[in-house]
Design a protein around this nucleic acid. Structure first.
Length: 257
DNA sequence: TCATCCCTGTGG
DNA sequence: CCACAGGGATGA
């Protein structure tokens, strides 16, 4: 499931193929995306390709194509049609961006101006973080998952960030000690940047793929996510799984007391 | 603030 | 064969 590190990996990989290049045609293979047909003048030059939170944004002169991969979406650069359920093809002179999405939960639209209720990026200056945490009584894991508070963190990285911080997922955000806030503030960019260096996380289901179909190696660096019943890599205690906000929540009961 | 829906492949 | 996976929009 693409979160910030996966989307960043995709954008970095696609950028040299796309930025400054002419989009020739848009092929829509899913009725849910019918709205894209004729939404852009073609051909159209991609002025910039970038990420905001988990969104992928193709900026044209006066329009922006907004993609969200949700659970199962992939964006692949390929010369020919890849395997899988292709919902959309953005064709360039020397290849295409293929939006493959078996569960069809991903979204794509063309807008005049990108609007989404997103909090700050977690890789920038986090000086604001302690004050914002102080204001919220929601469990800290749900706070991290709330895109309006901080943009780009999903279920996998929320779990890993909290493990590294030594904070239990159900702790209320406003109850964190100064020391815990300091550790969280450090762990957020550390975990995300390491995951970007690993080109993201491909779980055993194989769902996430990089822009050329690569696997994300951060799967080998996971300490808690998906490891219920396995020994904690730090202390050996059995990793536990609970449900918080309807989502699977993994943690070490000893390291995250 | 919390539940529901969207989707479909996969594991149990 | 059914429950589950879950980000985000939406409505209660």
């Amino acid at each position: 499931m693409p979160e910030l590190p996966e989307v960043e990996t995709i954008v970095r990989g696609l950028r040299p193929h796309v930025e400054g290049h002419l989009l020739q045609t848009v092929e829509v293979h899913d009725p849910k995306l019918r709205g894209l047909e004729g939404a852009l003048p073609l051909p159209s030059r991609v002025e910039a390709l970038f990420r905001r939170g988990k969104y992928v944004l193709f900026r044209f002169r006066d329009r922006t194509l907004v993609l969200h991969l949700r659970m199962s979406g992939q964006l692949l650069w390929a010369e020919r049609k890849p395997a899988g359920r292709v919902r959309l093809v953005l064709r360039f002179p020397d290849g295409g961006v293929y939006f493959v999405d078996p569960r069809r939960l991903g979204t794509a639209e063309v807008v005049k101006e990108f609007r989404a209720d997103l909090g700050p990026e977690p890789l920038g200056n986090l000086a604001w973080l302690p004050g914002e945490l102080q204001k919220s009584r929601t469990p800290v894991k749900l706070w991290l998952l709330d895109q309006r508070k901080i943009a780009g963190i999903g279920n996998i990285y929320a779990a890993e960030i909290l493990f590294r911080s030594g904070i239990a997922p159900d702790r209320r955000a406003s109850s964190l000690t100064r020391s815990e806030v300091r550790r969280l503030k450090r762990a957020i960019p550390e975990v995300l940047e390491e995951a970007i260096l690993c080109a993201g996380t491909t779980l055993s289901d194989g769902g996430y793929r990089g822009p050329r179909g690569e696997l994300g190696a951060f799967a080998c660096e996971l300490f808690v996510y998906g490891r219920e019943g396995e020994p904690c890599r730090r202390c050996g205690t059995s990793i536990e799984r609970t449900v918080l906000g309807g989502r699977g929540t993994f943690f070490c009961p000893r390291c995250q007391g």
